[in-house]
Amino acid sequence: MQKKRVVFSYPPHLVDHPIITKLVRDFDLTVNILRANITPRGGRMVIEVEGKRPALEAGIGYVKEIGVEIEPIAQDVKWHEDRCTQCTACISICPTKALDVERKTMEVSFNRDKCIVCEACIPVCPYQAIEFLF
């Protein structure tokens, strides 16, 4: 079994297509929608897909083929290290430890691969050190 977290960018003509249902039914994938913002003008969806490797590749292939752009997650998240003061305000809020602290030095780090783009850190950071371009 393999798991992938990606961002789907929908062009306007695909917003009424049951793409997620297709992934579940036709490719036998488990899909977890972490975040979605779909309007008639298009939209974006942050999802986690899980399944056997060939099914996962075929499913992703199908989505690409019909015209949805796929990017790795957190591509649109910026952690401005120069703005971060290592205060650790975000640490108790981040649900996945994408923002984490090395306890010995008390230095904060950002691990892009763990970020689920939930934006919980945004109102918490006093220095606007995290930016989402979602």
Binding site: Q86, C87, T88, A89, M106, E107
Partner: peptide, 25 residues
């Protein structure tokens, strides 16, 4: 507090700081 969790009223509570220890150092 700096370990990341404390116990309050029997509940484990995650902690965050506002004074930067790294910058203080």
């Amino acid at each position: 507090l700096k370990s990341g969790k404390i116990t309050v009223q029997g509940k484990e509570v995650p902690t965050s700081g506002f004074s930067s220890y790294a910058k203080a150092r």
